[in-house]
Design a protein around this nucleic acid. Sequence first.
DNA 1: CGGCATCCGATACGATACTG
DNA 2: CAGTATCGTATCGGATGCCG
Lengths: 133, 133
Amino acid sequence: MPSTSKCYGYPVESIPFDVMDPACPSRVVLQRIGDKWTPLIVQALKDGPLRFSELRVAVGGITPKVLTQTLRALERDGLVLRKVFAEVPVRVEYRLTPLGESLLDPLNAVREWAESHADKILAARDAFDAATD
Amino acid sequence: MPSTSKCYGYPVESIPFDVMDPACPSRVVLQRIGDKWTPLIVQALKDGPLRFSELRVAVGGITPKVLTQTLRALERDGLVLRKVFAEVPVRVEYRLTPLGESLLDPLNAVREWAESHADKILAARDAFDAATD
DNA sequence: CGGCATCCGATACGATACTG
DNA sequence: CAGTATCGTATCGGATGCCG
């Protein structure tokens, strides 16, 4: 616990993590949930467990390799639970853990912002590009 | 406006953008605000304009090159306004646009989640790694 | 002070093919 | 069905040095 980091300098009552601190673990957390596929996968699981192939369809455009990679990472971080059913053929279900469900609201806020402001961003981009040719 | 994309198939009243659609522009928006530095820069500007060197300090660990890159991208997308003062030495201020300010709340939700759940994620990670050695 | 130019390494992501 | 293996690319980000 280096005293150089704000993340470890606060009493337990206050928030001990600070994303503005380069050494703070909350930064890596922020980048995990901010990667290309994590938000989409988590939100695809919001209504209950899905199978691997169902996830592939729900999250448009993802390849099996990347889906596996991201699911493994989410499992490792305790956001997703992987359950294998010994049937023939084998069935595998992915569901959100309570921790993963707690991420749903923040993610929804960002997703809704993205969907409702995408047009303005696109317009700003066009205007900027037109002004800098 | 290709009819193959859900993003353009809805009437104006409903949300025309869907992040689950691979062809939807809201995806690129989601990835911009989810990159490594954008959330930190936007939140660093929440209390008012900052100069380039002030931003460098506020956002710990960022290099000048990447700070410039990210600020240009934010400016292009209409989230940040860049203002140059013709003084000696020159002063440059960056401030959030109204569009950028509207991003503050969603981003705060995610940041707070990251800061308040980072310990659980770290613990889950350790447990997972210990179980898979 | 506020950048830009250049080089470079890591890695995230994708395409394709194959397997228990 | 639910992945794995292999390969290739592209983008991101870091280090360093220079400039108006």
